[in-house]
């Protein structure tokens, strides 16, 4: 298993990369390589040109802007994210999810932009980005634009970006201090893609009841699935039986079926894991369970 022949380019700036991408018909962007390299080795991908983004330093950063948003460069490695103080302090959901992303050796290379653009249905980082209502920033020679993460998946493993566009960063507003976050998944082996994963963010009001909730499932459909029914059902509640009823709405979702699990099993996992994640996030938010 060896990659097919291709022209290799390693631009040093985003402008150079955009110019190259605009001028080639069948080019692939090489980010961390933890998904594209297997596809090249197995010749599932046969691009004429490989544009390696690894030497573009301007795409690798984690910033906390003056406006209070967190910005992550597309080529920031998963390992760097997990080690970043601002992510640790302000976005515990991402930290918890990163522990499930592959293995240390793949996180040392894999990037957030690569995870988002590869868009594996069971990948953790797209679920996190959706739960955070992140904005995806893309650029081409024609200009820059942004997409809400909710609009980013076009269909199965395909982001809604044009062939001449590069994802340059994601940004999001961190949830306020004191919010509760939980990322829970079931995989056959630690580090495998999840069969089902769930991300939960909860914010409590002064009265101890939930006044804002974000609940997103991964592994059940072609892209991350926002569970509006669960969010609505928990808002205003104080845990307890409300969580059980809320999680039960996952029994209604249209879960996919593949070699790893049936749709019925995925619905079951979605319900159980969502319930667990709600409980954990609520406790972490300092919530006191109603009877």
């Amino acid at each position: 298993m060896k990659p097919p022949p291709f022209h290799y380019h390693d631009p040093r700036s985003l402008d150079q990369a955009l110019a190259l991408l605009a001028s080639r018909d069948n080019a692939k962007l090489l980010a961390g390589g933890q998904s594209l390299m297997p596809m090249l080795n197995m010749r599932f991908a046969q691009p004429d040109d490989i544009i390696d983004l690894n030497r573009i330093e301007e795409l690798s950063f984690v910033r906390h802007t003056e406006g209070g948003r967190i910005e992550i460069g597309a080529m920031t490695r998963q390992r760097e994210l997990a080690d970043a103080a601002v992510i640790h302090d302000r976005c515990p959901l991402m930290c918890e999810a990163l522990r499930h992303v592959g293995h240390r050796a793949t996180r040392n290379r894999g990037t957030i932009g690569g995870s988002l653009c590869h868009l594996d249905p069971a990948a953790e980082l797209p679920v996190v980005a959706m739960a955070l209502d992140a904005t995806v920033h893309v650029q081409s020679r024609r200009g820059a634009r942004t997409l809400a993460m909710a609009e980013f998946p076009a269909f199965y493993m395909t982001p809604a970006i044009e062939p001449d566009e590069i994802v340059t960063k994601i940004s999001f507003e961190p949830w306020p201090a004191g919010h509760g976050a939980a990322f829970v998944e079931f995989a056959r082996r630690h580090g495998d893609f999840a069969v089902v994963a769930v991300a939960v963010l909860l914010e409590l009001g002064g009265d101890g009841a939930i006044h804002r909730a974000s609940v997103v499932l991964g592994g059940v459909g072609p892209g991350p699935l926002r569970c509006a029914a669960v969010e609505a059902a928990v808002t205003g509640s104080r845990g307890g039986s409300a969580f059980q009823e809320a999680a039960a709405t996952c029994g209604e979702i249209d879960a996919m079926e593949d070699v790893h699990a049936s749709s019925a099993y995925r619905r079951h996992l979605a319900e159980v894991l969502t319930h667990r994640a709600l409980d954990t996030a609520f406790t972490r938010a300092g919530g006191e369970r109603a009877s």
């Binding site: 990659p3 290799y8 390693d10 390589g33 933890q34 390299m37 297997p38 080795n41 390696d52 690894n54 390992r79 240390r104 050796a105 793949t106 040392n108 290379r109």
Partner: peptide
């Protein structure tokens, strides 16, 4: 095929030599 690249573990089958 795990090796260390600049001190960090990496799969050497998932990197090009030119990288």
């Amino acid at each position: 095929c795990t090796i260390l690249v600049d001190g960090q573990a990496a799969r050497s089958c998932l990197m090009l030599a030119v990288q």
